[in-house]
């Protein structure tokens, strides 16, 4: 099947037994799934997680009926995969977000004053450590919205919840993160 075939065409083809056509679906959606996994889990775990997502999607491909875009359906599987793995990692973490923000308040304040400097390796490491301690649900919805750029309708489908819930979760996630940043790193002085 050629690369102009729609996702739906490819899915039909895979379901009718042309397994090789799944490669094109993976190719098309690799960046989105891998991007979410990288943001949620970091480079060490992202690839394994993304592979799992595509294997799970293949296993339940017949349950995809095209109400939402295939990419949104994949985001739903990827979200669950990332939440599972993040929660497992979070249980092992001894640090709390408050402790980290308190210890690194000055460095975070410096980053917020000059966001362009957040690209260096040290800065990325600090950002990663802060994100790792955000409640997984907050981190997920903020990543889907801010990094992956999903709109409210896509978020409803990816998170399997109502529009009101999408708005409420985003508001809570941002408020809670901002409050902590203001408390520990004097965001108001930035």
């Amino acid at each position: 099947m050629d690369d102009k075939a729609s996702d739906q065409d490819l899915i039909r083809s895979v379901l009718s037994g042309r397994q090789e056509d799944y490669a094109e679906l993976v190719r098309r959606h690799h960046a989105k799934v891998m991007g979410l996994c990288l943001s949620m889990l970091g480079p060490a775990q992202a690839e394994d997680a993304a592979q799992e997502v595509f294997l799970k999607a293949y296993g339940s491909l017949s349950e995809f009926h095209g109400e939402a875009a295939f990419s949104t359906w994949l985001y739903r599987i990827a979200s669950n995969q990332c939440l599972d793995m993040t929660r497992r990692a979070a249980r092992k973490a001894e640090d709390s977000l408050d402790t980290l923000l308190e210890a690194e308040g000055d460095r975070i304040q410096a980053l917020l004053a000059e966001p362009d400097k957040a690209q260096g390796e040290e800065a990325r490491d600090l950002v990663g450590r802060v994100l790792a301690l955000l409640p997984p649900e907050y981190r997920l919805i903020l990543t889907l919205r801010e990094v992956q750029g999903l709109d409210y309708k896509e978020l409803m489908e990816a998170l399997d919840c109502s529009m009101d819930s999408v708005k409420a979760r985003l508001r809570r996630a941002r408020q809670s993160f901002l409050e902590k940043l203001r408390h520990f790193s004097k965001l108001e002085d930035v």
Partner: peptide, 9 residues
């Protein structure tokens, strides 16, 4: 600002 630092591409 927060988004640029913590949720960059």
């Amino acid at each position: 600002k927060t988004s640029r630092v913590f949720f960059g591409p």
